[in-house]
Each structure stands twice: as structure tokens, then as C-alpha cells.
């Protein structure tokens, strides 16, 4: 649905209520800022028009009016509005909230679905949520500080080792939403991207069940390193995936992709290389 989007990380094309509220805040502030800029420009122009002999200005009127009362009034209203908007975006307790866990790594994200109980689905680089439902993302980090950010759905929240932060997101419609790490996390920061896939609610459970039971035929060498808990991203769902822009695999195919596989996987037979490359390319 968003394949044709001009700017997939744009905060100005909201895909959910949280991002929409912030976008409205932006447009209102932009209008106010433009008006204040115009006011200062007019006052400056006034100074240059008065070429006649020097006069004394009423210091109190300028400074108390322009410097004290005017900003206090504007800022008072703005701060109050921001507080109300911010309060509404918080993860307050509510019925029917879906909980997912996001654990950041250098340089990928691991997502789990604790609501599913034992054998819960674990995915890397792709987070599956139901559309039209509130989702609480419980965010933490396995190593350095990262930040979970899906601009079309909500603002960002940091992944801090030793702590858990909770971000409320909601996708208004099914679709793919680009996300990425927003806190500088080292040499792989630029490529630390992920996708949030919002499913129609009725398909959500089925999708996760499929992910959980998937037994894609990966070469043993790949599966060994990418088993959950090894520190490398898991392979569940990879064969059906479109890699997000910015991900190292996004633009790779054919011989370049096979070269990438050889570089990362160590000793593989030619058939295994072919097999892994086909799986990595699968979703495209």
C-alpha cells in the first residue's frame, strides 16, 4: 500500500492517530512561527524607515509588551496544549491492547509477541501488528542505546539497556510502515532499519501462527548461527519478506546476493548458497 509513498519515513504523512496529532501540532506551530517572523520583520523595517532625527522610544512598552507579555501568553497556551496532546499519546491502561516486545541489537531488531504465550513468534527486522488496534511496544536493548521510530505511526522512544520503555502505536489501516533506529548506535546505524506490517485484524492471528510454525528449508550453517538467542537475527518469515529501503539486502539480487551470502555464511556448498539466496530474495 505504501510502496508508492514519496517519503516512507515522513512525519507529515501520518498513518495513525499518534502521528496525526503530532503532525497537526506541527502545522499549527508553523503558522504561529510564520506570524511571529513577519512581526519581527515589520518591526525591523520600521526601524529603517524612521530616518528623521533620533527620538526616544518607550522602553517599557517595547520590552514589557514584546519581550515579556507577548511570549508569556503564546508560550502558556502552547505548553498547555502540548501537555494535553502528550498525555493522550501515552500508553494508559486500556482494554484490548496488544503487547509486543522490541529488543534492539547492533544492528537489527528482535520482535516477540508475549500475548501468544509459550512458543510465541519471534521475528527479526519485521514487526507484525493488527491494524486499527492499540499496540504497546515494550522497548529495550541488548547492547547500546537505540531508538524505536516508525514516523508514520508515532514519535520515537529509546531502547536503553537495563530498562524497558513502552510506546503506544496504532496503524489506522493495514499496510507496511517503515521504521528505523533513530539513536546513533555505531557503524551499522544507517542500515538499522525495520518494517512494521499492519494486518487486517482477522488475518493477524493466522499470520502469526504461520510464522510460528514455519519451517523454511535453510542450510544448516545458516540455521545454526541464526537460532534465537545467538545474537544474530532469526530467520522466521524471511522467505516472505520485502527488505526495507536502507537494509543491506534491499538492493541485492542475483550474483551480488550470492556473494553477500558467501561473505556472511562461511563454508557453503554451491547448492546451499543458491538455496539461501533464493530464500532471501523470496518476498520480492
Amino acid at each position: 500500500m505504501l510502496g508508492g509513498c514519496a517519503a516512507p519515513l515522513s512525519t507529515l504523512e501520518p498513518g495513525g492517530p499518534s502521528a496525526r496529532a503530532i503532525a497537526v501540532l506541527w502545522w499549527v506551530m508553523l503558522a504561529g512561527a510564520a506570524a511571529i517572523t513577519a512581526l519581527v520583520a515589520v518591526l525591523l523595517a520600521l526601524a529603517w524607515r524612521r530616518r528623521h532625527a533620533a527620538s526616544t522610544v518607550n522602553a517599557a512598552r517595547w520590552i514589557v509588551g514584546g519581550g515579556l507579555l507577548f511570549p508569556l501568553g503564546v508560550l502558556g497556551v502552547l505548553t498547555a496544549a502540548a501537555l494535553i496532546v502528550g498525555e493522550r499519546l501515552l500508553p494508559h491502561p486500556a482494554p484490548e491492547v496488544v503487547t509486543v516486545e522490541a529488543r534492539a541489537h547492533q544492528f537489527w531488531w528482535r520482535f516477540t509477541h508475549p500475548d501468544l504465550g509459550a512458543g510465541r513468534a519471534v521475528t527479526a527486522t519485521e514487526l507484525h501488528i493488527p491494524a486499527g488496534r492499540d499496540v504497546d511496544v515494550r522497548i529495550t536493548s541488548a547492547d547500546v542505546i537505540h531508538s524505536f521510530w516508525v514516523p508514520q505511526l508515532a514519535g520515537k522512544l529509546d531502547a536503553v539497556p537495563g530498562f524497558e520503555n513502552v510506546l503506544r502505536i496504532r496503524a489506522a489501516a493495514p499496510g507496511r510502515y517503515q521504521g528505523r533506529c533513530a539513536e546513533f548506535c555505531g557503524v551499522g546505524h544507517a542500515a538499522n532499519v525495520f518494517t512494521v506490517v499492519a494486518h487486517p485484524p482477522e488475518e493477524y492471528a493466522a499470520t502469526l501462527a504461520r510464522l510460528r510454525s514455519e519451517a523454511a528449508p535453510w542450510p544448516a550453517n545458516c540455521a545454526a548461527c541464526h537460532a534465537d538467542g545467538t545474537g544474530a537475527p532469526g530467520l522466521a518469515g524471511v522467505s516472505a519478506r520485502a527488505w526495507p529501503p536502507g537494509h543491506p539486502l534491499h538492493a541485492l539480487s542475483g550474483e551480488a546476493l550470492r556473494a553477500w551470502v558467501r561473505l556472511h555464511a562461511g563454508p557453503l556448498t554451491e547448492a546451499e548458497t543458491e538455496q539461501a539466496a533464493a530464500l532471501l530474495e523470496g518476498g520480492r
Binding site: 526601524a47 522602553a59 519581550g67 515579556l68
Partner: peptide, 13 residues
Amino acid sequence: AIQIFAWLATMVQ
């Protein structure tokens, strides 16, 4: 803002 308006007022004066 107080400083900006003091400077603007100085220029007007």
C-alpha cells in the same frame, strides 16, 4: 525575547 525587543527598540530609537 526581552533582548530582541530591546535591540529592536534601540534601532527604532
